[in-house]
């Protein structure tokens, strides 16, 4: 009997790709993440939302070691990566990340930006990688820009290149840190469309965003964070229509605008 329960547990664990266990992160005096735990299964798209400074970006950055955690565990593919000396470079090849400010390398062309990782980090053949890079660039509609420098691209184009740059390393999971926050409104769509496509292809993703409509469309699960804690997590259908907590309700209300009904109360 016990055996079979163990087996069931084991099965469930197997499909967990990345797990954060009781993550605590302090910045000086303040506690930014307070005992945050989250499981991300293979193929799952989780969207983290919450007010500015709630710790959602920090949580993302802890997952690939850009921020050090004070306590807790991060488990990737069933292996605890935060015990002993972590080989972050190899972990990070499995955990891709796209940043708010693109952070393309300004001294390299679009193509060189994309192939630098696979060639230098993974030691792959440059010709082969170039072919692959061109295919990916074509997919996001930027093949004709391959010899351009980042400064010659629009924000939306830069961000699409940044996504390709992360994709070409064939990561097991992608982290998106407010990737449309620095974009002009008309460019938001082209970037979000790429992410929606990746979701449809079954990529595992952890996304921090302020685009609620997008969150609703892309997420399998919404995780609402406030004050460094997970306040609520649910399916987007439930979260956006009937949030369980008062805090989430108030947060969602800040996105609703109603026309002033005139005169009486202000």
């Amino acid at each position: 009997m016990e055996d079979s329960i163990d087996e069931v547990n084991h099965m469930a664990e197997q499909s967990i790709l990345l797990e954060a266990k009781n993550i605590v992160k302090d910045y000086g005096q303040g506690r930014v993440l307070d005992d945050v735990s989250l499981q991300i299964h293979k193929g799952e798209v989780i969207v983290l939302i919450g007010p500015s400074g709630c710790g959602k970006s920090t949580f993302l950055r802890c997952m690939n070691g850009l921020e050090q955690i004070q306590s807790g565990q991060i488990v990737l593919d069933g292996e605890v990566i935060t015990e002993g000396k972590t080989d972050w470079p190899s972990v990070r090849q499995k955990i891709g990340m796209v940043f708010q400010n693109y952070e393309l390398f300004p001294h390299k062309t679009v193509l060189d930006n994309v192939i630098l990782g696979p060639v230098k980090v993974q030691g792959r053949d440059k010709k082969e990688v170039t072919k692959e890079a061109e295919k990916l660039l074509e997919r996001v509609g930027l093949l004709e820009k391959k010899d351009a420098f980042p400064r010659q691209l629009s924000g939306g184009q830069k961000q699409r290149v940044a996504i390709v740059r992360a994709l070409i390393l064939k990561p097991e999971i992608l982290l998106f840190d407010e990737v449309t926050a620095a974009l002009d409104p008309e460019m938001v769509r082209e970037v979000l469309d790429v992410i929606l496509e990746l979701a449809a292809e079954g990529y595992t993703m952890l996304i921090v965003t302020h685009e609620m409509q997008f969150a609703k469309a892309v997420a399998d699960k919404i995780v609402f964070i406030d004050g460094g804690k997970i306040v609520e997590s649910d399916t987007p259908e439930k979260f956006f229509t009937q949030p369980k907590t008062d805090r989430a309700r108030r947060f969602l209300n800040t996105f609703i605008y109603e026309k002033e009904t005139g005169g009486e109360k202000l």
Binding site: N64, L66, W88, P89, S90, R92, Q93, G96, M97, F99, N101, E103, L104, F105, P106, H107, L116, G117, K120, V121, Q122, A162, R165, A166, L169
Partner: peptide, 29 residues
């Protein structure tokens, strides 16, 4: 910028590679 270093690290670069391929070329200019 710090972001350049972080984005290179996030791609799996060793710190020495970050310096060589990302920071130095920009810093020199």
């Amino acid at each position: 910028g710090k972001g350049q270093e972080e984005s290179a690290l996030a791609l799996g670069f060793q710190r020495s590679q970050v310096v060589r391929y990302v920071i130095l070329p920009q810093a020199l200019s």
